[in-house]
Every structure is written in structure tokens, then in C-alpha cells.
């Protein structure tokens, strides 16, 4: 799966602005570096007259005070204008989403609007292109940082505070994000995806997410649902449309339709579910889910088939 996670291949307007700033600074920085090194080489190897001219307090003044003062003021002005622009009021039709960082995954909420109910999902955010998205960022435990480099700079998620970030995707595609603030043991395995869709596709997806989980179709899936409710999965996980209403772990109502499981640690496939349920402490050590090593293979397969069916 192609997923962008790069500062210099932007798919959103904030990232584009910053990439341009970056290129300007890389070019300017390279020129200054070459200039300084060139001067140092001249100072050592240059002709007598040139060297004598360099060997003065004037050089220190011009090179060390005037030149940086002028270039830095120019650059700072550019940087400050971009900084100030971040304060513009949110657009009226901005899409509002809430993301909460938890050790080591992301809880995602699309708040209720009008009579449309709230949607809770995890580790994946879908957004429309061409529309501003304002995300409220919170944390329930330690500090995390929300970062999708191809769309925008990062903003920390700090317990006790709500921060905001705005995304404005300009190109459809799948963008990978990752926690950027060290948040304990499995920090390296706390990633997620942002899928930017055409507005119409996005509305379809949203409508689908609002539905409760589709009931199991096959016998295997049915067995899986039973196991889900009887082996304790429902203690932590919710599946709308079933009695499972746990809130400790990710909501699994449409988990089969997501790109990955375990915060972008494993690709979404029945085999991944089985592996995860049994072996999660090896795949992502210290994560809060116990490993269900006691489940026999056939039960695992049933659970996996059921979860995979929750599109």
C-alpha cells in the first residue's frame, strides 16, 4: 500500500507551504555554507592582497553581524507571516473531528451533527479533499503528538489540555501519520492512516460508518461473534449493534474496513487478527491488550473471520 509520510511530498496546503519554506531555506543555507567554506579556503590559500583584506575586523563585522542581521531579518519576516497565518478563524463548513492519543493507539470521534449520530473509530481518519478539517487533540494518559507530515506540521496531545490542528488535503490519497512525542514502551508502533477522499466518496463512507455493524453471515463468523461476547473481548471493545460496549480499547464496529490493525502495525487481514489476538505481546510488547494464548486455532479463526467481516 502506498502511503505518504514525507515532509517534502505534500498532499495538503499546510504541508505545501512548509515544503516551500523548506526549499527556500535549503537553497539559501547551501549558498551560505558554500560561501563561508569558500571564504575559509581563501583565507588559507588565497593571494596575499586578498588575504590581507580578509584579515580585518571589517570582515568580522560585515560577515558576522551585518550579513546575518539582514538575511535573518528577511527569513524571520517570512517565517512570522506563515506563523501568523495559522491564526485565521476556522472556515464555517470545516469538518470537526476529535482524536485522543492513548498508549499506543488513536481514538477517533466524528461528533454528532444534527440528527446524524456520533461515530467512534480508531487509528484511521478519513477526510474529504478541498475542505478544511479541524481536529481537536487530547490525551488520556501521557503526551503524544499528532503528525501527518504530508498534510501538516505536528501538534502535541497533552493531558489536561485540548489542542487543535487543521488539515486541508488537496490531493486524494493515503497518508501515514505517526506519534512524534516519545510516549513510552511501544511509541515506535503508534501510527495511523489518514485517507483523503473525494467529497462524495467521503459522504458515502461517513454514511456507512454511521450504520451499526452488519450481522455475521457465515457460520464461522457467527461462531466468532459468540466468542467475542463470551471470551471477554467485549469488556474492552465496543461493536455497535451488538451488546459489546467496552470503551477501554478501540471501537471495532467497522474494523474490517480499516487499512490496518493495532495502530498501523499489521495490515488488515484475517490472518493478522488471529496473530494479533494470540501473539500481540510479541508483535507490540507492553500494549494494554492481554495475549489470548489459550484460544485454540479454530476459535481464533472464527474470531478473525468475524472481525474481518465487520466492513
Amino acid at each position: 500500500m502506498e502511503a505518504h509520510q514525507a515532509v517534502l511530498s505534500p498532499g495538503g496546503s499546510d504541508a505545501e507551504t512548509i515544503a516551500t519554506l523548506g526549499w527556500v531555506m535549503f537553497a539559501g543555507g547551501s549558498a551560505i555554507f558554500l560561501g563561508v567554506i569558500g571564504l575559509a579556503v581563501y583565507a588559507h590559500l588565497g593571494g596575499e592582497t586578498l588575504r590581507r583584506r580578509l584579515a580585518s575586523r571589517r570582515l568580522v563585522f560585515v560577515g558576522g553581524v551585518l550579513f546575518p542581521a539582514v538575511t535573518l531579518t528577511a527569513l524571520l519576516t517570512y517565517g512570522l507571516i506563515l506563523t501568523g497565518a495559522r491564526l485565521a478563524a476556522p472556515e464555517a463548513d470545516a469538518l470537526r473531528i476529535e482524536v485522543t492519543g492513548e498508549q499506543w493507539w488513536w481514538r477517533v470521534r466524528y461528533p454528532a451533527t444534527g440528527d446524524a449520530p456520533e461515530i467512534v473509530t480508531a487509528n484511521e481518519i478519513r477526510i474529504p479533499i478541498g475542505r478544511q478539517v479541524e481536529i481537536r487533540l487530547a490525551s488520556v494518559d501521557v503526551i503524544h503528538s499528532f503528525w501527518v507530515p504530508s498534510l501538516a506540521g505536528k501538534v502535541d496531545m497533552i493531558p489536561g489540555t485540548v489542542n487543535r490542528i487543521r488539515l486541508h488535503a488537496t490531493r486524494t490519497g493515503t497518508y501515514r501519520g505517526q506519534c512524534a512525542e516519545y510516549c513510552g514502551a511501544a511509541h515506535a508502533l503508534m501510527a495511523f492512516y489518514v485517507v483523503a477522499l473525494e467529497p462524495a466518496q467521503f459522504e458515502d463512507w461517513l454514511a456507512g460508518q454511521r450504520q451499526p455493524a452488519a450481522g455475521p453471515l457465515t457460520a464461522l463468523q457467527k461462531q466468532g461473534e459468540g466468542l467475542f461476547l463470551s471470551t471477554g473481548c467485549n469488556g474492552c471493545h465496543a461493536i455497535r449493534g451488538t451488546p459489546a460496549a467496552g470503551t477501554i480499547g478501540p471501537d471495532l464496529t467497522h474494523v474490517g474496513g480499516r487499512l490496518s490493525i493495532a495502530a498501523a502495525t499489521l495490515p488488515n487481514a484475517a490472518a493478522s487478527f488471529a496473530r494479533w489476538i494470540r501473539d500481540n505481546q510479541h508483535i507490540k510488547p507492553n500494549n494494554r491488550m492481554p495475549a489470548f494464548r489459550i484460544l485454540p486455532d479454530d476459535q481464533l479463526a472464527a474470531l478473525a473471520a468475524y472481525l474481518e467481516s465487520l466492513k
Binding site: 542581521a69 535573518l72 524571520l76 512570522l80 507571516i81 506563523t83 491564526l87
Partner: peptide, 18 residues
């Protein structure tokens, strides 16, 4: 003189960023 420069660019910040 350096401090004056530092004050001036703080003023720049004050001027540009709301």
C-alpha cells in the same frame, strides 16, 4: 547594539503575528 537588534526583531514579531 546587539541587544537593540534583538529588541527590533522582537518588534517584528509583535508587528506581524496577531
Amino acid at each position: 547594539a546587539l541587544s537593540l537588534f534583538a529588541v527590533l526583531i522582537e518588534a517584528l514579531a509583535l508587528l506581524i503575528v496577531p
